[in-house]
Design a protein around this nucleic acid. Structure first.
Lengths: 339, 339
DNA sequence: ACGGCAATTGACAACGTTGTCAATGACGCT
DNA sequence: AGCGTCATTGACAACGTTGTCAATTGCCGT
């Protein structure tokens, strides 16, 4: 591999001068600059960011660890992160934890070893006593979408409690009276929020649902399938189902169709996150949308503030976004009140 | 940052011995090994992969450059790549070119500078005379999904010609006689393939479509919207539309609904790629699916073969996958033959 | 002509790791 | 006892870059 020294030799200057030309330092004579540029191009020299990273103790890498890169929500988040990282002149390193703690730990370790300059993490739930792997001290972390108690980190998330509440109110408005909520991963902040939003609205409306109408899962399609099977096999069936995210709603819809139920005549379906984002689609689901792209972008901005040379030591900051209700056709016409 | 030397000092050994312990070299006495491990843990030492990378001339990074990370197909491809890369003990660096040549070039440059060990590239179309940016020599590249003439690289792609042909035949079977195909990016191999599959079947069936029934685009939703507007404003409307990918079909469906057309009564809709993968969904689109996950996985395998120490110098290899037709409800009942 | 200043260029060392080779000691074999 | 072999450990240098500081040059004003 040709190095800066080869270029220097060819241009008849010292390696340092080559380095200056590459980094556009002002103090190089125009003529020297040209000579170096010529040598660079003659030799096909490509600067070595690894060596530079070693010398400067900054790798130029930003890590993103998400739980499910195929989930439309996280895929949009990742896009927001990618754009912002690139605009900052850095590179994105992506890890998919699949909501497995061991994998997340593995990634944190590897990324620490690679000296990424910062980490954006969607943490998977962990036992309270669980300790963080040894990371390079002062490696800034931004927690995204969920919470991670005991770590002093900036947080970016979305108020899905009020979003779910809006969904729930919409269903009540449409005359639904037996509403279930399904599919979120227990011990995640996001599932907890969604359930509280749901419960708050029902309490407000003076309604009580059977405990079996709240069914946790794993935020994946099979949770939706299993939940529908359980719900529709019971004596008292729901007339509406709120799915906890875009993948769960897929399972819910699938299984309802498979079992022969009509949507929305028999059961209304709504979801947090849009399985088919930014589209009116046909036929359109009723959903609340989180601003995933923005969330990713802001996470990067928070991270960059913590980086040298401007590295700020402010208190951790929490940025909370709102959601947007998008009404589709899966919640049906108004039914006669009272189920 | 604590370094291997600090650990060595604390354990009363030389840095090399610490290095051996970390890398599990066999030739270290058990007692020494323990002492070093203790020191590592006492000091919270994290090995520096940047320094190691510099010394060994391998970064442990694999780069993936895709054209649209939010597209369901590429998002699944990326997942396949991520899994395989992790299992190989490396890290994934992700770039999104947005089908812009300048961005792709920028990424290739940065990734070259970072000395990634290999690149998986979905190339965006480029003028024939366009030259590749100067990359470190011998940096292996695998071309994914499309083609990149003039580069000796392994290729992984999918035979969407036959897939599109199957879709087209299915539509003919259902009685459709005026079939349009829309939305692919001109000059991409994939769009070219899809159009040829379509044309081959029509030729076979002795049918001729107006030239306006083939409408290129940019593989994004707005291509679908624009195509529908053009098609449905014409005197002779199609009775079926094949969308070139998952995002285009979204635009197609949206715009058809917006304009008041019924699916499939007025127009059948089919697509290459599933906007909502691995689901029976409701209501189900008729699509041909590409095995994105497998494609990503195989791309990594091809790349790894080219890496030291086993680095193979075999001729470039091309792996071509097949597609699977999944029949949904958007192609409707059989119509009377003859439009 | 001379001191002072800015522009330009370079020497040296260091970032943290590991490949190569050598040194040391222990052990078994003849 | 003398030899070779193996396990264990370390010294040195190098990977490619850049921060720090110093040296050189040219030019200005007085």
């Amino acid at each position: 591999m040709t190095s800066i020294e080869d270029v220097a030799r060819r241009a008849g200057v010292s390696p340092i001068t080559v380095s200056r030309v590459i980094r556009n330092h002002p103090n190089v004579r125009e003529e020297t600059r040209d000579r170096v540029r010529q040598a660079v191009s003659d030799l096909g020299y490509v600067p070595n960011a690894v060596a530079r990273g070693l010398k400067q103790s900054r790798s130029g890498l930003i890590a993103l660890i998400i739980t499910d890169m195929v989930d439309p929500f996280f895929s949009v988040v990742a896009h927001g992160v990618e754009d912002a990282v690139r605009k900052a002149g850095m590179m994105l390193v992506l890890g998919n934890s699949d909501d497995e703690l061991a994998l997340e730990m593995e990634y944190l370790r590897i990324m620490g070893e690679h000296r990424v300059d910062g980490i954006i993490l969607v943490p998977t739930p962990r036992p309270a006593e669980f300790s963080f792997p040894s990371l390079p001290a002062s490696l800034p972390i931004v927690v995204l979408d969920r919470s991670l108690p005991g770590i002093a980190a900036d947080v970016v998330r979305c108020d899905t409690a009020s979003g779910t509440a809006a969904l729930c109110r919409h269903l009540l408005d449409r005359g639904r009276r037996r509403i279930a909520i399904v599919g979120g991963l227990p011990q995640t902040l996001t599932w907890h929020e969604r359930v509280s939003g749901y419960q708050a609205v029902l309490r407000e409306a003076g309604l009580t649902m059977p405990a079996e109408f709240v069914i946790a899962g794993n935020y994946k399609a099979d949770s939706g399938v299993a939940a529908v099977q359980a719900l529709m096999a019971a004596a008292e069936r729901p007339d509406a189902i709120i799915a906890a995210n875009a993948k769960v709603v897929r399972g819910v819809l699938d299984e309802l169709v498979t079992l022969g139920f009509r949507i929305p005549e028999d059961v209304a379906v709504a979801a947090v996150d849009d399985p088919f984002p930014a589209s009116k689609f046909w036929p359109r689901l009723t959903v609340v949308e989180q601003p995933g792209y923005e969330m990713g972008k802001v996470a990067v901005e928070l991270l960059l503030r913590r980086l040298p040379p401007t590295s700020s030591n402010e208190m951790p900051r929490e940025v909370i976004f709102g959601t947007e209700l998008r009404i589709g056709v899966t919640c049906g016409e108004t039914l006669a009140a009272g189920a």
